[in-house]
Design a protein around this nucleic acid. Structure first.
Lengths: 407, 407
DNA sequence: GTTATTAGTTTGGGTCCTAAACTTAAAAGC
DNA sequence: GCTTTTAAGTTTAGGACCCAAACTAATAAC
């Protein structure tokens, strides 16, 4: 363990501050006494921490606890609605989106700008994005809330640590320093920018919205196929942030040739695009909503050829996911994006493959669920990632929470 | 983040104790002053922590620092050779092994008992193992060193948290409560038992022996194929400890039927067994050393059919590993077990597949290396896992290191 | 109204950290 | 050979933070 940090009194305070904030977030309105009981800290410590957090406008007192039985009523504590917000930004293939999320994870404001981004230059798209972003920062001002940081979701291979977009095949982008480019256009002060892959942020959004799911992978695949991996309630990013790229998993060595040069890649056989192609609903070069509607209509009407095509995609998806589950040992698969609506037809063939191929399935069967977050999960997840960072370590965003910032 | 623990002064001490111990372990003999510089702690703190660790016999002073220039010479600190040891135990298919590893990771004693375990009952094998284990505990007594805990490596699917062996196909074992069974036979006091999969412990052994590798997967495959995953210098176990089961990754849907019921599983196409079968060297139902020697002879002699068979196995292995790398984003693959000796013939076909199929390979090529630990990596890793636990949090093993053990 | 019970604050004690002064040891300069 | 300089390690004083327990405050039950 090289380069580990020494610990001191401030470390303890930082940890406990996050602990208390987490307890307030999870237990809804709670009294100091309840927080103390839940966290294992003493009432004195909780009081002290809460006092600092109220001062930083992270927590607010919202009246008296309503409860039967005797004894003094506690003061209800909740996350402050005027506390720091997370700002999510998404560059989609055919839209730009931003959203503001408060400390509870609630979306306070969302803005979507439609328009195909594939026919525009990087500069043009970033220009439009900058405008949208400035508008959203103005929204935050209007709401009277500070923005703690930004999360930026992109449909491509991203190196979060470097702030670099390596490649976004569906946008036609390569090697864009998004962190620098964005800061050059919009004044973000020293607010952190969390750059990430669309699929990863979508997975985080699922994690945040369901409260009993701590381990799962969230798969979506309109044109390329990607998966966000959540283990132990944490995003698993791999070494450089490239994890979850399951689109080029080999499932059929005799399958169609892929743009990557190999044969039988999953995304040639199981993407929504490939399904639409198989049933003759592929129109332009995008997954347009009308085609997906038509597909769902045919499925509801139980047209054999359509059902078979989706089942075939499910078979390949299951084959690949079985591999992923064997490698990661994850108990749950969430179908996100367009897959979510196809879940009733996809789940069975996927489960069939999982059951035979996953060694651990005998003891712990793998569940296949549909996403509960719905569309625009990625922007929400991006904003959420900021909120998550604030909640985990509030002292990073509000240095005043710990007395001497000697670090 | 539910059920997180509150932090206090003892938490700080625990953290810093591990930090100092880690610094001493990594930097070889070092003075207190150097440790202070490396860890960022003050000299006063380091002195205090070191004093406690010397008292606990984890660290020893071994004379004066030799160095040019002026100023007082420091006292060299090293991990104590009489400090706590880790005891590794392995149940192999055709042997039983134990070893004692000191705090530096050095093997101090190793015992191997040959003999096919597949033709024996669970009870018989555990009886033999108990005897070997008692002998090894006596070895530790003779060396005058305490044993901090045990690591037990098994060739099968294991649930570490529960201490359960779910299934070991090559032993023919199912549902064995190894923790309970072993404690019933040998008095282990309250020493912790770390149960784990062979491949995982082998990977840990690699991690420990190389000092610049922090992210890799270590693959081996005599009959079944397994991989240990190391990310950020930590073993990635998955949710229940079943991670890395790559033997049943689907690589060829038209391939041979597997015992698991599915078709085209990797271990039917790329295990050492399957290679030996392909070249007509498969004799009994085990991978015997003589056959492997014969295989290596033919490869050295560049016999086309043999080279082709190994290359074919490498091709399938590469296909599967490309999937694993795409999912995990790991920059290095280590070939362990019998694969290590085949590395010169396997590396190229594996690399070829990785290069085309791994998206991130354009920016970060994947290396394919041979194991440096050699045989019996798993036992060593098992013992090592205990040492690693001691080094990470010595206070768990020596409560006296932190003043009031109030938790 | 008194009592029991629960919420939250105040006080005293303790651990562990840091910073800075101090002691010890050894080379370098004159 | 003695003084100076530099570095190692210890001692001391001060501060942050935690906990335990006493204390104050509020409210239902008797």
């Amino acid at each position: 363990m090289p380069h580990a940090q020494p610990a001191g009194a401030h470390t303890v305070r930082r940890h406990n501050t996050g602990l208390v904030l987490g307890a307030i977030a999870e237990a809804g309105p709670v009294s100091r006494a309840t927080v103390a009981a839940r966290t294992g800290l003493t009432k004195a410590t909780v009081s002290s921490v809460v006092e600092a957090m109220i001062g930083a406008d992270l927590v607010a007192e919202t009246g008296q606890e309503q409860r039967s039985g005797r004894g003094r009523r506690g003061t209800e504590l909740t996350l402050s609605p005027h506390g720091m917000h997370g700002l999510g930004v998404e560059i989609g293939v055919d839209y730009l989106a931003t959203c503001l999320v408060d400390l509870t994870g609630e979306v306070r404001k969302r803005r979507i700008r439609g328009g195909d981004n594939r026919n525009r230059s990087v500069t043009a798209v970033l220009g439009r994005l900058a405008t949208l972003l400035r508008t959203t920062l103005a929204d935050a001002d209007a709401l009277g809330v500070p923005v703690g940081g930004l999360g930026l979701a992109v449909p491509g291979l991203v190196e979060p640590a470097a702030g670099l977009l390596r490649t976004a095949p569906n946008l036609g982008w390569r090697e864009v320093d998004l962190n620098t480019e964005l800061r050059a256009r919009v004044d973000l002060d020293d607010r952190p920018l969390i750059l990430g892959n669309e699929a990863n942020f979508a997975a985080l959004a699922e994690l945040w919205s369901a409260d009993d799911l701590r381990d799962f992978i969230c798969v979506s695949g309109e044109i390329g196929i990607g998966a966000g991996i959540i283990i132990g309630g944490e995003l698993f990013e791999g070494v450089r942030g490239f994890s979850g790229e399951i689109g080029h998993l080999a499932v059929d060595p005799n399958g169609p040739r892929c743009s990557c040069g190999a044969q039988g890649c999953l995304e040639q056989l199981a993407s929504v695009e490939s399904i639409l192609r198989a049933v003759g609903l592929w129109s332009s070069d995008a997954v347009d909503p009308a085609s997906v509607e038509a597909l769902l209509d045919r499925l509801s009407a139980a047209r054999p050829a359509t059902v078979r095509a989706v089942a075939q995609a499910g078979h390949w998806l299951g084959t690949a996911l079985a591999g992923v589950v064997n490698v990661l040992d994850v108990p749950t698969i969430i179908l996100g994006g367009r897959y979510a609506t196809l879940q009733p037809w996809l789940a069975e063939p996927i489960t069939a493959e999982l059951t035979t191929r996953v060694l651990a399935a005998t003891w712990h069967p793998v569940r296949v669920l549909a996403s509960t977050v719905g569309p625009y999960a990625a922007v929400r997840g991006a904003a959420t990632a900021v909120v998550r960072a604030i909640r985990t370590d509030p002292t990073r965003f509000v240095p005043a929470l710990v007395s001497s910032g000697v670090a």
